[in-house]
């Protein structure tokens, strides 16, 4: 783990994505996109029908989040990561098209990790349930597409000092796998 967090500013190129290692702490600055289950389903449907995506995902980071609405004076209310595994069915296709980063919680499927290795993409973990703390890092949020999906709409978010950790890197190294090995060493019967 590095001593001080690295600054990540999307759009990311392949070289900078491949330069990140599992365990690196990062602070993300700039524009990212927020999307979860329903928005992903629509993006993939658009691609299947030969239509363009509503936003340019090349070099982009997608944050798996459905925020609470902001009270008056708040950009958003609470906005922590949702479980990433539900986006595993959709992520490889987006990674192939140039998506460089995803922010979520929990482990990814082998298919997603394979796509990350192939194209050069990174999976960041943010702290699940720290929604109030993470929302303070979001300085702008606006619906970019699929407004009818409500909390699941595709949003553009501008973030400042958004804290995350590289959970799985573009070499396929993962904190979860490392941790799995740790567990197997201690509990070989399980």
């Amino acid at each position: 783990m590095s001593s001080s967090p690295q600054i990540i500013t999307p759009p990311m190129d392949e070289t900078s994505a491949r330069g990140l290692k599992a365990g690196d702490e990062v602070l993300i600055q700039g524009v990212i996109y927020a999307a979860r289950d329903a928005a992903h389903k629509r993006m993939i449907a658009a691609l299947d029908e030969g239509r363009p995506l509503p936003v340019d995902i090349r070099g982009a980071i997608i944050y798996y989040v459905g925020p609470t609405p902001g009270a008056p004076g708040q950009v958003v209310g609470s906005a922590g990561p949702t479980t990433s595994v539900r986006m595993d069915a959709y992520a490889p296709r987006l990674i192939e098209l140039g998506l460089r980063g995803m922010i979520g919680k929990g482990e990814r499927s082998p298919e997603v990790v394979a796509a990350m290795k192939q194209s050069g993409a990174v999976y960041f973990a943010a702290t699940g349930g720290a929604g109030a703390l993470l929302a303070k890092c979001i300085v702008r949020a606006e619906v970019a597409a699929y407004e009818d999906l409500g909390p699941e709409a595709l949003r553009l978010m501008e973030v400042k000092d958004f804290p995350a950790i590289v959970a799985t890197d573009a070499n396929g190294q993962s904190l979860y796998q490392r941790h799995q090995r740790f567990r197997n060493d201690f509990f070989p019967d399980c």
Binding site: T68, G77, S78, G80, G131, A132
Partner: peptide
């Protein structure tokens, strides 16, 4: 969350 009236979690 308590100080700023933000939900503890977005879910």
């Amino acid at each position: 969350a308590a100080a700023e009236s933000r939900p503890l979690c977005q879910d």
